[in-house]
Design a protein around this nucleic acid. Sequence first.
DNA 1: CCGATCATGTAACTCGTTACATGATTAT
DNA 2: ATAATCATGTAACGAGTTACATGATCGG
Lengths: 183, 183
Amino acid sequence: MSLPHAILTALLERPSSSGLDLTRRFDRSIGYFWSATHQQIYRELGRLEAEGHIRALPAEQPARGQKKAYEVLPAGRAELARWTAAAQDPKPHRDALLLRLRAAAVVGTAGLDADLRRHLELHRRQLAEYREIEQRDFPAGADSAQARLQHLVLRAGIELETFWTQWLTEALAELPVVDGEPG
Amino acid sequence: MSLPHAILTALLERPSSSGLDLTRRFDRSIGYFWSATHQQIYRELGRLEAEGHIRALPAEQPARGQKKAYEVLPAGRAELARWTAAAQDPKPHRDALLLRLRAAAVVGTAGLDADLRRHLELHRRQLAEYREIEQRDFPAGADSAQARLQHLVLRAGIELETFWTQWLTEALAELPVVDGEPG
DNA sequence: CCGATCATGTAACTCGTTACATGATTAT
DNA sequence: ATAATCATGTAACGAGTTACATGATCGG
């Protein structure tokens, strides 16, 4: 149950955003570690409004096709603070790439290298993007408490992408030696 | 669509496993990077059998409560090989812990440290477990192609857990300075 | 016999995904 | 006008989760 809290966070970071505004920010920013489609976001905005956690800003529009901006209500901010401090078990991992390598150990690695190279390239691009954001938004020097936390989260992204580029490079180096169908 | 392929891999690694055998191995081993509950596994075993990818070993038992062992059929092995080599886009990330820190940047970090310490301890234990497995199953020396791939996957787990323990330590070091509700 | 546990399954629900529908606004 | 795109939704489905049901086996 994290999507409503992701939306509350995004709405507090930028009040009076619309569904589409939020959708765009779930393609970057917040979306780097919690993705969501516009269908999910509209559904969840409806629920959050029904629960009294957010409200649509008054604008007497007949809805469909018209922009609709929201703001977080005190109850929504309280719920987000509660959730942030609450104990939560880490979700079990699911990584299709690691699973594929384990499968390749059984059925062979034929044809696998092309997609590994593609993934390596994707991770390199993501890493470059994170580093640009870091230089733009977190230049060296005095930071507010808020900025330090945001920078910490960004560094997690940078270090994870760094890991994946290194690991994929290593995997590709091991692959050709192993090539060909066994059995 | 990775669960059926995770099951095919597990079944090829150890043929004539039952649903419960598989369930137990999805709590470790394969489950370290693709978790699944017994309900998911039984449902998927039914589908894989209906598709002709696996078959129940003959044992004339009336099913309910009786052990039922499966083996992978040639069509299942072919499907696994196809899936392993096929291009697949990486799934968008979802990390509740990073989301919580981003939320904490907005609503404050009060009460967050306890759960961060708990997560740190969990990651330390997981790392220790991976290192034990490495020493037990991959001692230094000549490896088969299969063992080298399996070791590569395990090293990914080790390096990811290493990252999280370091990052959480850093996060906890930054936290107290920031403490208290803003606003 | 009886409870614990092994083993297989059903049912109901939520979350996420994919495809499609509909109205409003803007540029040509 | 009309095509593109902005903006908000509906519908159907599949994967994953939680709670429960049922039969078999084994130790006391």
